[in-house]
Amino acid sequence: MATQDSTGHDRKMIAISSGKGGVGKSTVTANIAVAMAEAGLRVGIVDADIYGPSIPGMLGIAADAKPAMTPDQKVVPSEAFGVKVISMAMLSPDDEPAILRGPMVGKYLRMFVQQVDWGALDVLLLDLPPGTGDIQLTLAQAFPLTGAVVVSTPQDVSLKIARRGLRMMEQVNVPILGVVENMSGFTCPSCGEVTHIFHQGGGERIAEDIGVPFLGSVPLDPDVVESGDAGTPLVTAAPDSPAAAAYRQIAETLSGGKITTRGISTPFIWTLTDGSGKPDPSAPTPGGAANLLVALDQSDIGFALTWADGHEQHLTPLDLRLACCCAACRDEITGADLLDASSVPLDIGLTRIWSIGNYALGLAFSDGHSTGIYTFKALREIQGTELEDV
């Protein structure tokens, strides 16, 4: 799925993630971004690791390079090697920690994507912190990500944690674009013999097990560390090295193919009172996913939801209101209903519907309730009227 930037230009928004730290995720991000830029693409990086930003240093951006503001109060990103960058490292002194609670982290992430003067971009890479926590969930909910790339080393422990990261992205309907195996074998600079220090082929096996593409292996190279510390990515500092070739191949794969989820057009905010903002539909496809929403429309009884596998589901606003799973309507621990069904008006209506990432809808009702998150999986399971393909 490609989103549009402020200029109306289609761009891919790709998250680079890892299950654990120390696997070289930021190094992979910096190098594939520069490789894309060298291939002629317009590329940006959001350094989404708020607590441990490292992208500016890897691209040689000075720690005191404070961003300027445009007349319309947008942040001007720094630029190096043809790549635009925004990072927390540009907003605070180099040795000052970012002491922020979750809501403030979310605020900065939204600012980095929405309030930066990116201009026309082909690809915006989001360098995520390791793990499956608040930052990953915030980005998945707030922005329609084209997909995610998971970086791992060949070690069994790293691969097991990477699998959790893959499953987390799947649960929020972020397409997995592929797995990168970093630090895959060490090539002796003297004799050329390859030594597989951390085992061999683990990244390819986990990609095959889960059914996602394997994007490639990046070998260990001392020049990766030296070039990163010097602020010059390896694809520029040692363009003929095996690692640089691997980075360029991964960049070509990510930027060259057409990536689409075939889902409903997002982001959107559909106001039912005047009909504005209604999302553009997609068509069901043979073998489509059961929990991927491709169309949303009003019907005689309420709303018709069409899923990628061709099923059409009809739900009333009352069905949807009674199925709310927010903390005010259902106990988060026991799952017991807290909502008194008799208190909900039979003629309740919907006033707004909006997208939450690629995996859920937000609904506002005429009784003022608007705090529920309706995942596509939960919507599909609501007992309404289902019509088979015709």
Rank of each mutant, 00 (worst) to 15 (best):
T3G: 15
G8A: 06
G8K: 05
H9A: 14
V23K: 04
G24D: 04
S26L: 04
S26Y: 01
T29Y: 00
I32P: 03
A37C: 07
V43M: 04
A48Y: 01
Y51C: 09
S54T: 10
I55D: 00
M58S: 08
G60Y: 07
A63F: 12
D64R: 07
M69L: 14
D72R: 12
K74C: 09
V75S: 09
V76C: 14
S78I: 02
G82K: 10
V85E: 09
L91K: 03
L91E: 06
L91R: 03
P103M: 09
P103S: 14
F112L: 08
F112Q: 03
V113Y: 11
Q115N: 13
W118R: 03
D127N: 02
P129K: 05
P130S: 01
P130H: 10
G131M: 07
G131R: 07
T132E: 11
I135K: 04
L137E: 10
T138A: 02
A148K: 03
V150K: 01
L159C: 06
L159V: 11
I161M: 10
R163N: 10
R163Q: 11
L166P: 01
L166R: 03
L166E: 03
M168W: 00
E170W: 07
P175R: 06
V179H: 08
V180S: 08
N182D: 11
M183I: 13
G185C: 13
S190M: 12
F198E: 04
G202E: 09
G203V: 01
R205E: 15
I206A: 08
I206C: 06
A207E: 03
G211P: 02
V212P: 06
V212L: 06
P213R: 05
L220W: 06
V225I: 13
A237H: 06
P242N: 07
A243K: 05
G257C: 11
K258I: 15
K258L: 14
T261H: 14
R262P: 13
I264A: 01
P267V: 07
G275W: 12
G277L: 07
P281W: 03
P284S: 08
L292D: 12
Q298F: 12
H311R: 13
H314T: 09
L318M: 05
D319S: 13
A323L: 02
C324T: 05
E332Y: 12
T334N: 04
G335P: 12
D337K: 15
D340F: 05
D340Y: 02
D340N: 06
D347T: 06
I348C: 14
I348W: 03
L350G: 06
T351S: 13
I353F: 03
W354F: 15
S355E: 02
Y359I: 10
L361N: 02
L363N: 08
L363E: 09
D367V: 00
D367T: 00
D367K: 12
Y374S: 05
Y374Q: 10
A378H: 15
I382C: 04
